[in-house]
Write a protein that binds this DNA or RNA. Structure first.
Length: 505
RNA sequence: GCCUCCAUAGCUCAGCUGGUUAGAGCGGCGGACUGUUAAUCCGUAGGUCCAAGGUUCAAGUCCUUGUGGGGGCGCCA
């Protein structure tokens, strides 16, 4: 019977058979250590000459990285191993010998890895990310399903730009122009009026030429929409939703988060009330006019800059020290070791120098942030650095938000929108609002945004027939994955990223 | 679209103010080693230094243009 590595803990001492691939191999005269992966996990398997005999031992020597095998052996507890168990092989059957697998266990550049994405997914880090992504997806469904939400899919092909703001991918629908959907939001409002509480879960397409760590051209968005909800209820839901998803991943993906080196203590900070600030309060915090928990946004950046400069000096000193040691004359092995350390330090310095070039620009942008404008990418980073927990920014300037957002009572210059900004500089992961219910205001807004009203007649019908207060939000799945996994870039958050300049593989 | 950094072996990178025959690690191959954790050690093969033009006695190194890439910003979510 075939078993999975994930289930090893339930089969301690038993003989099991697994099928998988070799992710690494170490050899000595009488033992061969294989790191095997079967999709469910990674485990070390030991092929010992005494256990398998000469013939099988020799064939095990032929195994290369990513060769496929069937292994039968005993599950033994060993605290030193990744999953806590290892396999003492009794029988080995080679399925296929891999030749010249391109991805080694050493560092690679992002271009090379992206070109080899179809193979890169086999690597430990990518495996761990995809497991977390899966857990996040499950937690999202679980959260909504257990609260009576109905999943209602929105169309992927649309006849016009839903919100009229973004660049869309154009395609063709039986001879007529059509677009790939940039949002399911308006359709979710319609289905919420039918089902009460709904959520969409589907792909979304944006044709902007955005080349940043926060953007993909194709990504997955979750858009809950609730009838009889105002923005306060919306914010409460966003908070408990985020807490639920993060907690589920922390609980179910300990091994994976560990492999990613994620600081779980940072994630557990979702177990506190999320700070809520208005857009204009956030602007003051950003400019350093108001402090949060004794932290000044500008000062924090200046400290980061000073720390980076200091780190460069320390690494520089270490390089000089190594160079002096080498010059003094050492054995070859030692010399290479020191030289490699120098090369690594040089790489780290390059990254730090980039940081030193960027932070002053960020500080400049934050200090001069004008009231009533949208935050830039760096502004979000600077702002969230002063908070531990995710922050909700609400009551946004009307002119920078979509036409359907409800105006704040008595203040038409602001709307009841809310963005959730993740901590540690990961930026916006959720954007939501209470929707406008008054048909006259909505028609006026459609005109102001120069949108074709005839295309929105069906949407206006939602206000003609039993218009009710309602609210909802949109979550970018990959942004959530990026934050929870602690990744530098969104390109690692989805199996096959589609972004500006990348359609293969 | 703008700013900035970069392009050297299959991969990751050194190569200073131009100067004989361009280096290391990983990976490959051969060998050593009784449990290794990106194992280690010894040996070995592997290069049109992104392209085109220019400066110079001499260019991987300097200049111009192009192409490709990283980081930041913008657009945007």
């Amino acid at each position: 019977m075939q078993h999975s590595i994930r289930q090893f803990s339930k089969h301690e001492g038993e003989s099991v058979t697994i099928k998988g691939w070799i992710s690494n191999k170490r050899e000595s005269k009488t033992n061969i250590f294989l790191v095997v992966r079967d999709g469910s996990g990674f485990a070390q398997a030991i092929v010992s000459l005494d256990d398998v005999g000469e013939e099988q031992f020799e064939s095990a020597k032929r195994l290369t990285q990513e060769s496929s095998v069937e292994l039968t052996g005993k599950v033994i507890k060993d605290e030193r191993q990744i999953g806590g168990y290892e396999l003492h092989v009794e029988k080995l059957n080679i399925i296929h010998i891999s030749k010249d697998y391109p991805i080694s266990n050493k560092a690679h550049g992002v271009k090379f890895l992206a070109d080899n994405r179809h193979l890169w997914l086999r690597s430990r880090k990518q495996w761990a990310i995809m497991r977390c992504r899966n857990a996040i997806i499950m937690a999202i469904h679980d959260f909504f399903q257990s609260r009576g939400f109905v999943q209602m899919d929105s169309p992927l092909l649309t006849g016009s730009a839903c919100e009229g703001t973004t660049d869309l991918f154009e395609t063709e629908f039986f001879g007529k122009p059509a677009f790939l959907s940039q949002s399911g939001q308006l359709y979710a409002e319609a289905t919420a009026m039918a089902m009460g509480k709904v959520y969409t879960f589907g792909p979304t397409f944006r044709a902007e030429k955005s080349d940043t760590p926060r953007h993909l051209a194709e990504f997955w968005m979750i858009e809950p929409e609730m009838a009889f909800y105002n923005n306060e209820m919306n914010m409460d839901l966003i908070e408990s939703f985020t807490r639920h998803v993060v907690s589920q991943v922390v609980e179910k993906c300990q091994l994976e988060l560990n492999m990613l080196g994620r600081d779980i203590a940072m994630l557990e900070k979702v177990n506190q009330t999320f700070p809520r600030v208005t857009h204009s309060e956030a602007a003051k915090i950003l400019r350093g006019e108001v402090e949060v928990n004794g932290k000044n946004a500008i000062t924090v950046q200046e400290e980061d800059l000073a720390a980076a400069k200091k780190a460069i000096e320390e690494k520089q000193a270490k390089i000089e020290e190594n160079e002096a040691t080498i010059k003094g004359g050492v054995k070859k092995g030692k010399r290479n070791y020191l030289q490699n350390q120098i090369d690594q330090l040089k790489g780290e310095i390059k990254k730090l120098e980039e940081t030193c070039r960027n932070i002053p620009k960020w500080i400049e942008s934050a200090k001069n942030f004008p009231d009533g404008e949208d935050f830039g990418g760096s502004d979000e980073t600077v702002l969230t650095r002063v908070f531990d927990a995710p922050v909700m920014v609400y009551n946004w300037p009307t002119k920078i938000k979509a036409f359907y957002m409800k105006e704040v009572e008595g203040d038409p210059t602001h709307v009841k929108g809310v963005d959730l900004l993740a901590p540690e500089g990961y930026g916006e992961i959720v954007g939501g609002s209470e929707r406008e219910t008054d048909i006259d205001i909505l028609i006026r807004k459609i005109e102001e945004h120069e949108l074709p009203q005839e295309e929105f007649e069906w949407y206006l019908d939602l206000r003609r027939y039993g218009s009710v207060p309602h609210a909802g939000f949109g979550l970018g799945l990959e942004r959530m994955v990026r934050w929870i996994c602690g990744l530098d870039h969104m390109r690692e958050t989805i199996p096959f990223p589609r972004r500006y300049g990348r359609i293969l593989p």
